[in-house]
Design a protein around this nucleic acid. Structure first.
Length: 507
RNA sequence: GGCCCCUUCGUCUAUCGGUUAGGACGGCAGAUUUUCAUUCUGUAAAGAGGGGUUCGAUUCCCCUAGGGGCUGCCA
């Protein structure tokens, strides 16, 4: 039985890199009939952000990545919030101290700085708290038992550090990258338990993955270097037999390839990097999300799945369920992938083309309400069907089709002036008259009437048609004019033609 | 700087030693359309460089270069 977890830290909005990690975990869990667990790694009190956990949960729900176990649904390994498990980590850290795999360190942050400075002055490029310096520091290795217990009872702050033996290779097996070797001499004595009693990521992660019986760890590449420490921890605890497999995902890069995509890049490049929009007192400015940009969650899932993985066939459009069918962790790439917004838009439009109106109705109503758009008297479904092929994002619906919802048209004066002439105006007037008697007022009937009148007038299609469209929409290009007229209805259509008939071209 | 990872069209990628190096996005051209969008067709566009191994390397190995990650009592 496979068990995978997505373990984000609630320090802010989750961005698409995190979402993709969640997706791959979800996909592997579902494709192997295993469980998908959400664990909140809130062990950093300083960076904790209220609302972030809720944001994570809502984001996963929006995308359909529903956990089997987690802080909301509970589960056999509760609690799933690390801040509620501090006792467990303390016990385990102490256990390591007893077995001499870890030790207690009393050095203050200031003393640590001093140590680093001292080493750098000696020409050490990467000062580390390791075998080379731990004998010179204030810890349970250098102090005698009495001094240690006196400090402990005297409430002197302390941390617990992993004791790393230098001089041997630590080999990790990564499912994506193969064998990766680290020289333990390069590894520092990582802090396991912080002075505030909270564990660091390394301890909490290993302890929880073990206790929660996680079988496979899929996480970002930024964790590859510290995996050596994690393996050492599994050994120290004597858990190597049940150690999970590791897969380190390539990073999602900025569009220009310069570094990993970061939270600020949304602003910088003009596209969303977060799943959901978020307005909160706890963040400087409200952020946009794929949802507020008008993306379909299924499309977000689809293109994120393909950023670092592909099924090896030429099919690119996959629903979440289809992805579960074909997902194969063996095919995850090694190299980072740049985020390509154009391709994301293409995926989205592919989904938009095939959406049934019933699915978007509610969201459309929501957009209308948010932007104070009056939809009364408009057959929104018909408008949607007409505009559907031209939508790249659902949000564009009310901008592309604005002329259905207002009589204040934005006329493209320059183009209209170029085409307009008195004969065309007269024809428009004639068309308006004829349409008064057109019954029923359907696109087909309108088309017949208008085309007949145009033919009879002898005016060129290329001159009159742009004006016909501009009458109704303000612009000379766009959706089928007759369909537009049909949806607009007789009264508005005639009114708009009459208005255009009386257009004044400036001299 | 040190350690680690990575490297095929502009971008995302296929290729598990022998291919005219395939597809998608984007670009360009054309068809369809009254226009635009959609759709369809066509087209340009790639194995970082240098050494090996091999009858034969994009594919395996090494070096160089470039990119990225880590280097916190953050995750």
């Amino acid at each position: 039985m496979t068990r995978l977890r997505f373990a984000p830290s609630p320090t802010g909005a989750l961005h698409i890199g995190g979402i993709r990690t969640a997706l791959y975990n979800y996909l592997l869990a579902r494709s192997t009939g295993g469980q998908f667990i959400l664990r909140i790694e809130d062990t950093d009190q300083a960076r904790y952000m209220p609302g972030a956990e809720d944001y994570i949960i809502r984001s996963l729900a929006w995308l359909g990545l529903n956990p089997d176990e987690g802080p909301i649904q509970g589960g056999p390994f509760s609690p799933y919030r690390q801040s509620e498990r501090t006792g467990i980590y303390q016990e385990h850290a102490l256990q390591l101290v007893e077995s001499r795999k870890a030790y207690i360190a009393f050095d203050t942050p200031e003393e640590l700085d001093l140590m680093r400075q001292r080493l750098m002055d000696k020409g050490v490029s990467t000062p580390k708290y390791d075998a080379s310096v731990r004998e010179e520091m204030v810890n349970s290795l250098t102090l005698n038992a009495d001094e240690v217990s006196r400090k402990m009872t005297g409430k002197v702050p302390y941390t617990i550090r992993l004791l790393v033996e230098p001089g041997h290779d630590v080999v990790i097996q990564d499912k994506i990258r193969g064998e990766v070797t680290f020289d333990s001499t390069e590894l520092d004595d990582k802090i396991l338990l912080k002075a505030d009693g909270y564990p660091t990521y390394h301890l909490a992660n290993v302890v929880d993955d073990h206790l929660m019986q996680i079988t496979d760890v899929i996480r970002g590449e930024e964790w590859l270097p510290s995996t050596a420490h994690h393996v050492l921890l599994y050994r120290a605890f004597g858990w190597v037999d049940t150690m999970p497999t590791f897969s380190h995902l390539p990073l999602i890069l900025k569009p220009n390839g310069q570094g990993k995509l970061s939270k600020r890049d949304g602003q910088k490049f003009g596209f969303p990097v977060f799943p959901l929009a978020w307005h909160s007192d706890h963040i400087e400015e409200s952020i946009e999300g794929f949802d507020s940009y008008g993306f379909e969650p299924a499309a977000v899932i689809n293109f994120l799945a393909f950023l670092g993985w592909n099924p090896g066939t030429e099919q690119e459009i996959f629903s979440l369920d289809q992805l579960i069918e074909v997902f194969d962790a063996e095919r995850i790439h090694k190299g980072g992938a740049r985020f390509d917004y154009d391709k994301a838009l293409w995926f989205n439009s592919q989904y938009l083309q095939h959406l049934d109106y019933t699915i978007v109705h509610e969201r459309l109503m929501q957009y209308a309400e948010n932007e104070n758009i009056d939809i009364s008297g408009v057959h929104v479904e018909a408008v949607f069907k007409l505009l559907q092929p031209r939508l790249h994002r659902l949000k564009e619906f009310f901008t592309i089709g604005y002329y259905f919802f207002t009589d204040q048209l934005n006329y493209d004066d320059a183009e209209i002036n170029k085409k307009w002439n008195p004969e065309a105006g007269a024809l428009l007037q004639k068309i308006a008259e004829a349409l008064k008697k057109t019954e029923p007022f359907t696109a087909e009937n309108i088309s017949i009437i208008v085309k007949e009148l145009i033919a009879a007038s002898g005016l060129k299609m290329g001159v009159i048609m742009p004006l016909v469209r501009a009458s109704l929409t303000g612009a000379i290009q766009g959706a089928d004019v007759f369909e537009i007229a049909g949806i607009l209805g007789s009264a508005k259509t005639i009114e708009r033609f009459v208005k255009m008939a009386g257009w004044n071209v400036p001299k």
